[in-house]
C-alpha cells in the first residue's frame, strides 16, 4: 500500500485521521492512505506516479486534469481523492494497450491534434467518453463535447479532425 501523506504533505501533523481509499485505476485496484483534503489529481500524479494527468489551471477551467470517473469525464483537480474510493478511474495511461496506440492517439498523431501536448490527455479522454456513447459524431457535437477542455496552441481545428479520424477508425474496428 502506498502511503502518501508524508510525500504530499511533508508538514503533516494533524489530528485528522487519514483514510484508506481503494480505487480501480485503469483496471487495476490501487490503495492509498490519504488526507481528506488531497485532490484526486494529486493522488494520481504524486501518489501513483501517473503524471499523464496534467494540472493546468487548478481552477476547474482548463480540463487538462480530466480523467474518466466511472466512464464519464470529470476534472480531477476538482474532486477529493477520498471521493473516488470504490470507483473506477481511467487516466491517459490506460488508453493505449502496451504495444499499440489507441485510435484516438493515432488520430491526434495523424491529424496533428497537438502542439505542446499539455491539454492532450484531457482532450483524448473527453473524446473517448464522447465516442463511447456517440460513435458517429458531427463536427458540432465534437466541438460541444470538447468545450470544457482548453487548448492554447491548435485553435482546435486539428483536434476536431483528430477525433473525427478516430471515430472513423473505431467504427471500422467495430464493423470487423
Amino acid at each position: 500500500m502506498t502511503s502518501l501523506n508524508e510525500e504530499v504533505f511533508p508538514e503533516q501533523a494533524s489530528d485528522i485521521p487519514v483514510r484508506t481509499v481503494t480505487i480501480t485505476v485503469n483496471g487495476e485496484k490501487r490503495s492509498a492512505n490519504v488526507e481528506p483534503r488531497l485532490l484526486l489529481a494529486h493522488l494520481l500524479r504524486q501518489g501513483f506516479k501517473m503524471t499523464g494527468t496534467h494540472t493546468g489551471c487548478d481552477t476547474t477551467n482548463c480540463g487538462a486534469c480530466t480523467v474518466l470517473f466511472d466512464g464519464k469525464p470529470i476534472k480531477s483537480c476538482t474532486m477529493l481523492a477520498v471521493q473516488a474510493d470504490g470507483h473506477d478511474v481511467m487516466t491517459i495511461e490506460g488508453l493505449a494497450s502496451a504495444s499499440e496506440l489507441h485510435p484516438i492517439q493515432e488520430g491526434f498523431k495523424d491529424e496533428h491534434g497537438l502542439q505542446c501536448g499539455f491539454c492532450t490527455p484531457g482532450m483524448m479522454l473527453t473524446a473517448k467518453a464522447l465516442l463511447d456513447v456517440n460513435p458517429n459524431p458531427t463536427e458540432d457535437e465534437i466541438r460541444w463535447a470538447l468545450s470544457g477542455n482548453l487548448c492554447r496552441c491548435t485553435g482546435y481545428q486539428n483536434i476536431v479532425k483528430s477525433v473525427l479520424w478516430a471515430a472513423v477508425k473505431l467504427r471500422g474496428q467495430a464493423a470487423n
Binding site: 464519464k72 469525464p73 470529470i74 476534472k75 476538482t78 474532486m79 473527453t126 468545450s147 470544457g148 477542455n149
Partner: peptide, 9 residues
C-alpha cells in the same frame, strides 16, 4: 451551465 465536464458532477 458551466462546461460539459463540470456538468457531469
Amino acid at each position: 451551465i458551466a462546461d460539459p465536464i463540470v456538468r457531469n458532477r
